[in-house]
Every structure is written in C-alpha cells, then in structure tokens.
Design a protein around this nucleic acid. Structure first.
Lengths: 136, 136
DNA sequence: AGTGCTGGTCTCTTTTTGAGACCGATGTAC
DNA sequence: GTACATCGGTCTCAAAAAGAGACCAGCACT
C-alpha cells in the first residue's frame, strides 16, 4: 500500500513504455502524448473542463488563437475522443463543444502538470534568468 | 482533508490560471507548459528520469531524433532548470546530462499523464477509428 | 596519412503554424 | 430592398519550426 514504492519502480520503466519497448515506430504512449503536445490542446482542454463552449465563445475566450488552429485543434481533440461536438439546428446553426468522459479522465491527469506549473513557475523563471546570465 | 473537493473546486479555475486571469501575454502557467510541448521534451525527460545519459547515448537511445533537435531540446530543458549538463575533460571530452531536483519534481507531475496514456491508449485508438469511420 | 570517436553547428527542404481574406445562409437596420 | 452583421468554418499565402544530412575541430589508434 506504499504508493511511493510503486511510483518509484514504475518511473524507472517509463522510458521503456514511451518507446514501446523498442518498437519506436508505433508506440502507444507517444501516440497519445503527441496528440496533446500542440500549442493549444491543453489550453482548450482547460477551458472546456470549466464548461461547454460554442465555437465563437472559444474564439473570444482565447483571443490569440487563429480561427484556423481553433478549428483544427478542436477537430483533433474530437478525433481522439476527448471532445464532443454537437450541432444545434438554430438559425444560424450553433456548435457546442464539451468534454467527453474520456476527456475529463485525461484532463484529471493533465491537471497535475498544470498545478505543478502553477506552483513552480517562479523556480523555472529563476532557472531561466540564471542560465541566460551565464550565456551572456 | 477531502482532496476530491479541493480538486473539484480548483479544476474549475484552471482555465483562469492558464490565462493568467486575463493577462494572456505573460501567463506563468502557459509559459511553463509551452516549454514542455515540444515533440521530444517528454521523451527525453523520461529517458533521463531513468538515469543520466551522455549525448551520444541519448542519440542512440532515441534513433528517430535528429542531432539538431537533440541539441536544441536538451538546451531548452537545461535553460528551464530541468536538466543539468556536465562536461568531463576526457579525450575526447564527454558530456553528461542528468535531471535536476526541479526536473525530477516536474517529471513526477508529467508521469501522471504518461501513466494515463499507457492505461488509455486503447480507448483513444478506438475513438480515432470510430471517428475516421464516420468521416469516410 | 587515413579512420574513428566525441559533441556539436550549418545549410537546405519539408512540415506546421499564423494572419487574414473569403464563404453561404440567415437575420436585422435603414 | 439593400447594406451589414453573425454563425462556423475554409482557402491562400507568409513565417516559423522541424527534419535530413553534410561538415567541423580535437584527439587517439593504426
């Protein structure tokens, strides 16, 4: 029942898991992780974790995303099963995006990383400042 | 001490945290997360979490990374304080890369996401297959 | 003198992203 | 009735990032 030991052991095997144990070409873990590497994926997941949003609402909520990348990122997230897209036949038609159960589950894991970032951005900033100082 | 309630509450605020509460331009959380979004960052973190490696070892360990991107990704991880770079004055000189304390701490958070991917890649694959079927 | 190892950098091409115009169908203001 | 805006996109073109691979200096071995 000591989860620290379980974590310690499994962490040593993570690289093996990420490489598929030598079968690098179609490694399941990298396949999944790469889908979340996009610049906007985590941000949109965080927004949709809060509540469902319509296309135009998301565009206004995230002003620095281009319409093209919003469309594409939502499409990719939908394809991977994280996001549900529903079209309402209003005039003009409206489209609502929401998280699926799988999406909520994935966001639970992603959330740890976001929390870490929130708690440790000072340390990262200091590291960057120190590094840049020595490189000058 | 019911951590579920804490998590439930804080998850609703994650988007606000990721946007810096309106100050999108320099949001600390996005600043940190974006540094990990690279295609190779998480893979190299997983490798170095296992043990320290030399440059050439990493190149052989991850055959599908270009030397250019290996150099650059390690440089970025070092700048953010996750990776320590040490040059040994052997002939020819060797360079060892290892995780710092900050790097190990960050990888602890990243590890949740990798574990999720390991457990759920079947579901993601099925979602993709189903989605692609309807788009055909 | 030629070959190999070290850890890189440089250049060139391909892929990804960003900026922004454009679209049809509908509703509203003048 | 005619201009103009809103919806959720797509299309094109320029800029940025990534991949492929040649090249480099320094030293050891043969």
């Amino acid at each position: 029942m000591d989860s620290r030991i379980v974590n310690l052991r499994s962490k040593l095997d993570v690289y093996k898991a990420m490489t598929g144990g030598g079968n690098l070409a179609d490694c399941p873990v990298r396949d999944v992780i790469d889908g979340l590497n996009g610049k906007w994926s985590s941000l949109l997941m965080a927004a949709l974790a809060e509540q469902p949003y319509r296309f135009g609402e998301l565009r206004r909520l995230v002003p620095d995303i281009s319409q093209r990348m919003l469309t594409q990122t939502l499409h990719d997230l939908q394809r991977d099963g994280y996001v549900h897209r529903e079209v309402f036949p209003t005039k003009p038609p409206s489209v609502e995006y929401s998280l699926t159960d799988l999406g909520r589950s994935m966001f639970g894991a992603l959330h740890h990383l976001i929390q870490w970032a929130e708690l440790n951005h000072d340390a990262v900033r200091e590291a960057r400042a120190g590094f840049d100082a020595t490189q000058a």
